[in-house]
Nucleic acid binder design. Sequence first.
DNA 1: AATCGAAACAACCGCCACCCT
DNA 2: CAGGGTGGCGGTTGTTTCGAT
Length: 224
Amino acid sequence: MESRNIGEGVKRGAWSKEEDILLKKCVQTYGQGRWHLVPLRAGLNRCRKSCRLRWINYLSPNIKRGYFTAEEVDLLIRLHRLLGNRWSLIAGRIPGRTANDVKNFWNTHMATKVSSSPKTSEPVEKNEIIKPKPHKLSKLAMSINKPFEEPQQKSQWCSNVLDTTETRKINGQNLFSIPRGLYSGGGTTEKSRAGNNSTTQKDVDNGVSEISMGFWKSLEFFNC
DNA sequence: AATCGAAACAACCGCCACCCT
DNA sequence: CAGGGTGGCGGTTGTTTCGAT
């Protein structure tokens, strides 16, 4: 694939290995953040967004690549029912997966499967989906995304947040029929990844009115 | 072996909230 | 308080890869 040069000479398209190395070095040296400075520091002819996206979705050492495990899919389905298309939130609860990963996976594997399932075609009631305004939600997510200390904590959360009957049906019907063997089936649970937990209670409170009570009940598991 | 359509995934775009001055 | 800059998000598009015929 050929990269294109559009506009003010900023390179677009696929990243080369050399660019990856430069970006990696830059982030390792200066840390994440201040993305507007990254192209300059790294000597990259890329826009800040492109650099950030490349790091977050591909170069970050926390990223888990490869097939989604059955456990991850199960969690994804439940979280999607709970949160809707809040990919960053969902990704925050699936260790090692990025929002882009989750979104791509859902769009290519789950969206059609779920919608084609007679039982699951039943639309999720709008008032059941948590839709705080984006950035309030982001902050809320940080509190929600407190890493699970223990594996049991995670499974407890999963089993209590949602009724699992539906997702089990989805899994039973579709999980192993997805082409290209995208599931490893079972798999291990990664240790929780480091979270950016800078949320204040005020931030969380700001979103209260926009969030269903069912969700807040689920948050009791985190003592939020 | 070649072709074509579908699936998978990397990357881009536009928007918006937050932060800082 | 207002305005500009920045970070981050979800939706969408473009390209590559895979599988069927």
